[in-house]
Design a protein around this nucleic acid. Structure first.
Length: 566
RNA sequence: GCGCCCGUAGCUCAGUGGAUAGAGCAGUGCCCUCCUAAGGCAUGUGCGGAGGUUCGACUCCUCUCGGGUGCGCCA
């Protein structure tokens, strides 16, 4: 596809001797509104070098361009030289490209031969899967899809919290008060009860903690009884989690969690010792990070057991050896910024230059109106409940407005889940937010259902108008403002995906498909698509088709489905 | 005490150092004899504050105020 921006740079570089091509490229920008053109070149830099007024330079510069095939006009406006794309060329270029590439439009092979690991979701076994887990789950899933679309080989890893002293507690608690049948009837709730009870009683009776430590030690020592219980708890928890993953339509390539690395820790400790990075401090083994203005990284507790810093280091080394990753991405809450900074620094100090390829992708906190989420204090909203409620609300709307719709259940699921995911991916990751039912269950305005609805509208038009993508289309019949604006947005879509990937921010895509939907709905309301004139109809439907493809692709990259009817 | 993050309209948020700072929601008023009204149109006196860098700052720097979060044996 023609890169109009590059074309602007080519045109400019022949006329400007004071700046290099790269400098020009950096200066070329997009004007605030379309009536100022599609690209603009500000002349302030030149003005400084040439000691002339920017306005005069812009005027002179603009005068040296006559329109060409790609640009219908080049004008100066104050200190700017504005480039106006040849609209017909744009429309033809972008629609041809989309119709040819179809679902591949926007994809790329820049990632060919490179492996990107995305670690995300990572719930703790035997703990509820609550609203606090949604961000990592949904952002990680989307990032994986984005990388894949750009040609990377992707590995999604669910780094389950399936190890640690907490398991010693669970095993002790189960042995004291547990009942297999009761637990299997409602695993997470019952295991949580045991966990809470154990903690409460341990406050009164410290001996319990020793017992927990004993059982964790036994787990590490591969005591068959401990292993069996651990395996059982892990299995039933995972079964619970999978219900949510199924609702969200999310799959993982690996569930190698913390336990997976338990036997890979000694090697790390040995290596740290050999490289003389470890030192003792108050009985514990640490890596001093004082020179980097960070608190020390705690590698080994005074009782000899390891911590999650050690596990993360072991995991990173394992992943490098196993997958030879190009990027190793961690979608983990921003509270752990320091933790990641710290262990990645240790990996760097170990002499691994790939430390810089380990990337923490942080996100802000979810809280509830009455405070921070706290499972133990009962302040918790289960993710499954949120998803189910969203589906129910959607179902009610369908029953009310489109009672004859086929596959109501399936569509209610796609739209309800879509609404939740979309909202999650609508803003910058880093923003904190307070969970709110009304907002989660609102389906109007800039929401998932709005975009899905637009897609369904487009689908319906294509069906009614009997669009055939093999028809020859006279693109010159598309020339009104809305048609061109839609094409501009469709044209920018591939670039938006690249930005999303570069910043690990799915919301660029979310925002962009909302823009497309808005522009399309405007068009829909102002223009009849299915008209008497066959040629006009075909031309308009081709635009509808391209819009549908891009919306569908965009939603897919977010992990959201696009029903044809709703 | 120190570090990191956030602060834009009543609310929730966009805004690669550039041209008049934009959406959605909420409110009000319109638009279904017409391709899906989960839609469209109209209506908007806001960048926490103070300095600085720059031809130009919501954007970069310093300080300050408000909120969040983190800081050796949890993850």
């Amino acid at each position: 596809m023609i890169d109009f921006r590059d074309e602007v740079v080519y045109l400019l570089k022949d006329q400007i001797e004071f700046l290099s091509e790269d400098e020009i490229k950096l200066l070329v920008e997009v004007p605030p509104s379309y009536d100022m053109g599609d690209y603009a070149f500000p002349t302030f830099r030149l003005a400084k070098e040439q000691k002339k007024s920017p306005n005069i330079i812009a005027e002179e510069l603009a005068g040296r361009f006559s329109g060409n095939d790609n640009f219908e006009k080049v004008e100066s406006a104050g200190p700017y030289v504005n480039f106006f794309i040849n609209k017909q060329k744009l429309i033809e270029t972008v629609l041809n490209e989309i119709i040819n590439k179809n679902n591949e439009y926007g994809s790329s092979n820049i990632g060919m031969g490179k492996t990107v690991i995305v670690e995300f979701s990572s719930p703790n076994i035997a703990k509820p899967f609550h609203i606090g887990h949604i961000r990592t789950t949904v952002i990680g899933n989307s990032l994986k899809k984005i990388y894949k679309f750009l040609g990377y080989n992707t590995i999604s890893i669910n780094h389950l919290g399936d190890y640690g002293t907490q398991f010693g507690m669970l095993i002790s608690a189960y042995k004291k008060w547990g009942d297999k049948e009761i637990i299997e009837s409602n695993p997470i709730q019952e295991l949580l009860k045991l966990y809470v009870r154990f903690n409460t009683e341990a406050d009164e009776n410290p001996a319990l903690k020793d017992e927990a430590r004993y059982w964790f030690k036994e787990l590490e020592n591969k005591n068959p009884e401990a292993i069996e219980l651990w395996q059982w708890i892990r299995d039933i928890s995972l079964k619970e989690f999978n219900r949510v993953y199924n609702l969200l339509n999310i799959e993982f390539d690996s569930f190698a969690g913390e336990s997976f690395y338990s036997d890979k820790m000694p090697r790390v400790i040995k290596e740290l010792e050999e490289k003389e990075l470890m030192q003792e401090s108050n009985g514990a083994q640490i890596v001093d990070l004082e020179p980097y203005s960070m608190p020390p990284a705690l590698i080994q507790k005074s009782d000899g057991s390891t911590l999650y810093t050690t596990r993360d280091i072991a995991a990173a080394i394992y992943r490098k050896e196993q997958y030879n990753f190009y990027k190793n991405i961690y979608v983990v809450a921003s509270q752990q910024n320091l933790h990641f900074k710290s262990w990645i620094k240790v990996v760097e100090l170990m002499g691994y230059d790939w430390a810089e390829d380990c990337i923490h992708v942080p996100f802000g906190m979810v809280s509830l109106e009455d405070g921070t989420l706290s499972t133990r204090k009962g302040r918790v909203v289960f993710l499954e409940d949120v998803l189910k409620k969203a589906i129910e609300s959607t179902k009610e709307i369908i029953d009310e407005r489109h009672p004859d719709l086929e596959n109501k259940e399936e569509i209610a699921k796609q739209v309800g889940i879509g609404a939740v995911i979309f909202q999650e991916l609508f803003n910058q990751r880093i923003k904190d937010y307070v969970f709110n039912w009304d907002r989660t269950l609102s389906f109007e305005g800039e929401t998932g259902p709005y975009v899905q609805y637009t897609h369904a509208r487009a689908s319906s038009l294509l069906e009614k108008g009997e669009f055939d993508m093999n028809d020859k289309v006279q693109y010159s019949l598309l020339d009104n403002e809305e048609e061109i604006n839609i094409c501009r947005l469709l044209y920018n879509f591939p670039g938006v995906i690249l930005d999303s990937c570069a910043k690990n921010e799915p919301y660029f895509i979310t925002r962009h498909i909302v823009e497309i939907a808005k522009e399309f709905n405007k068009y829909y309301n102002s223009t009849s698509i299915i008209v008497e004139d066959e040629e006009i109809k075909k031309a308009r439907l081709s635009l509808v088709y391209a819009t549908k493809i891009v919306i569908k692709t965009g939603l897919a990259l977010l992990g959201i489905e696009a029903p044809n009817k709703m």
